[in-house]
Write a protein that binds this DNA or RNA. Structure first.
Length: 356
RNA sequence: UGGGGUGUAGCCAAGCGGUAAGGCACGGGACUUUGACUCCCGCAUUCGCAGGUUCGAACCCUGCCACCCCAG
């Protein structure tokens, strides 16, 4: 009897190819589609429906059975409620890193095990090795290890990433050659399972607006904001102020919850947009906690950023991360992911920026 | 109701008789499994209004209107 592998299928080309590759390798493959968000988008269409149809069609083409599971409650309780709480605190969360830890590699993994699977698989562009370490995907432009940094070795050892060694173009070419209908499907973006949204409008459905003043660093009032949670640090678009000051663009440099003021500064290179150090909480290590309390490694302060040289220091409070080069718009709630070369070590949620 | 000045897109602003620069904002797209950033494209048949001069005016002339400043 061949080993059973349950593949998390999104309806996209990556997971389609992942399932196909496993099937060709002789596994007993089962495709499972997750629906974790009930609401339809602002255009009134439910992309989950067409995605589910694509999953069914692809599974039929490949010749594997498929199921659909609904983790909407788990998603809301373990990911979305946290997401909203963070915004209420004026922070900018990354729900997808939690989604991977709590849903895809927990709820879904458990479900796969119940189906008798030896392992689960997804279409993520990441790789693992025998030791259960997380490695970057082979395609430097599509590496998604940033989103999986919160996983533990024990979770990764039960996961396969069939497309992690491939480049995106190869994946599409392969899908096309094999006749998978998803070969040309556009990559999905936006919050996982929720999708592309007009973000402000989306948040307004959950978080009440508390408008206030938009002020310059010197306190000069420049306009009004619709509610601090609708903006993030380093943001330019949506401020609606133009033609004042020296004529350059304005960027959010601070969210003053006390005064309910959005503080903005002019010029994309403004010093307040940059900092070298940050303190992280909720530190997670994929493997064992490092022996050294202080060491150099590289880090990404946001998805797709090229590796930054940093020095990290562990203390009782959390993790101190100091970059050798100034970092733009370090934002509380976002994740700092640590690497040793191609190996993802883990990371932390940025709690506060250390001003010089 | 004496004198002076200014009125160009939502904002700032070039233009000075030859057929409306640029920036910001805004809109669309690209990029992207968070939020952002970034990049590309678009954005005044029209220059406060009405006449006049001219082959031709936002630019010259006249009148009116609005705002600002200085005097009373």
């Amino acid at each position: 009897m061949n080993e059973r592998i349950v593949v998390g299928m999104s309806g996209g080309v990556d997971s389609s190819v992942a399932a196909l590759l496993l099937k060709e390798q002789g596994y007993d493959v089962v495709g499972v589609f997750m629906k974790n968000w009930e609401e339809q988008d602002e255009s009134g269409t439910c992309t989950a429906e067409s995605d589910w149809r694509d999953v069914q069609a692809v599974c039929d083409e490949i010749g594997i059975p498929y199921y659909s599971v609904n983790f909407a409650k788990e998603y809301y309780d373990r990911v979305f409620s946290y997401f909203l709480d963070e915004y209420k605190k004026g922070r900018t969360p990354n729900p997808d890193v939690l989604c991977n830890r709590e849903i895809k590699f927990k709820a879904f993994l458990d479900f796969a095990m119940k189906l008798g699977a030896a392992k689960m698989a997804t279409g993520h562009f990441v790789q693992t090795n025998e030791q259960g370490q997380l490695l970057k995907g082979a395609d430097p432009n599509k590496d998604q290890s940033y989103f999986l940094y919160m996983l533990k070795k024990q979770q990764l050892q039960k996961a396969l990433f069939p497309v992690g060694a491939m480049c995106k173009d190869e994946v599409r070419d392969y899908a096309k050659r094999k006749g998978l209908l998803t070969f040309a499907k556009k990559d999905s973006t936006g919050v996982c399972f929720i999708g592309e949204r007009h973000f402000k409008t989306f948040l307004q459905q959950f978080l009440p607006a508390t408008p206030g003043d938009m002020v310059a660093i010197d306190g000069q009032k420049l306009g009004r904001h619709d509610g601090l949670m609708y903006y993030t640090l380093g943001q330019r678009k949506g401020l609606g102020i133009g033609g004042c000051g020296d004529g350059r663009s304005w960027f959010v440099v601070e969210k003053d919850l006390e005064r309910n003021q959005l503080v903005v500064a002019q010029g994309e290179d403004h010093e307040l947009l940059y900092a070298n150090g940050a303190m992280g909480v909720d530190v997670t290590w994929i493997g064992d906690t490092p022996e050294e309390n202080t060491f150099d490694c590289s880090a990404k302060f946001r998805y797709r950023q090229k590796d930054q040289k940093v020095r990290v220091t562990l203390n009782g409070e959390g993790l101190l991360v100091n970059a050798y080069e100034p970092q733009r718009a370090l934002t509380p709630g976002q994740s700092i992911v640590l690497y040793d070369g191609d190996q993802c070590l883990g990371g932390t949620i940025l709690n506060n920026v250390l001003k010089k």
